[in-house]
């Protein structure tokens, strides 16, 4: 089992609902964010193109944060979800420096924090909070190893990209184009 997300850049309108839902669901401290919206504008006026992406930890299969962690606090959990064990984290910040997506931050309590794919919800059979609230149904969560899952079918049918695959992280969030 390998959990992943497919995020539709065409459906996404950048409303930030996913960001608010995450902050509420996970009691993310004020001023911090586990997910965020990127608006990318390319081209020259008047021929501009815009891509809107909801970004978060990519739960990489070859996660540099897990590799550089000196204590095993950063580890792979159920379905390959990359997690931080708060009681093992010493706050050395090596994982933060190793993440090409800047997805991690130091929680005010001292340990490193990040997106968990809402594992506590997933274990109950629910979707991550960001996916559940998306008003345009731009986000899909599921098992990438199961060829019959909705997400696997979407990825098979649509064109997609992952973020900065050249870093060698094997990210598990797919952006549908």
């Amino acid at each position: 089992m390998r959990y992943g997300m497919a995020i539709d850049t065409i459906r996404c309108v950048g409303c930030s609902d996913c960001v608010v839902a995450c902050q509420t669901e996970n009691s993310v401290p004020i001023g911090y964010a586990r997910d965020w919206i990127v608006e990318l504008t390319t081209g020259k006026y008047p021929n501009l193109q815009m891509e809107i992406r909801s970004e978060r930890c990519n739960h990489c299969s070859n996660a540099p944060c897990v590799r550089t962690c000196p204590t095993t606090a950063s580890h792979y959990g159920t379905g390959g979800i990359v997690l931080v064990d708060h009681d093992e984290c010493i706050g050395c910040k090596a994982c933060i420096a190793s993440c090409p997506y800047d997805a991690r931050f130091v929680h005010p309590e001292g340990y490193v924090d990040k997106c968990t794919f809402c594992l506590h919800r997933v274990e109950k059979g629910q979707e991550p909070a960001c996916v559940a609230v998306c008003p345009t149904h731009a986000m899909h969560f599921g098992d990438l190893d199961n060829p019959n899952s909705e997400i696997s079918k979407l990825i098979a049918r649509r064109k997609w990209k992952t973020l900065a695959p050249e870093v060698g992280t094997e990210p598990n969030i797919y952006y549908l184009l």
Partner: peptide
């Protein structure tokens, strides 16, 4: 031109 902002 490529411009990238975190709008949230």
């Amino acid at each position: 031109m490529i411009e990238q902002v975190i709008s949230s």
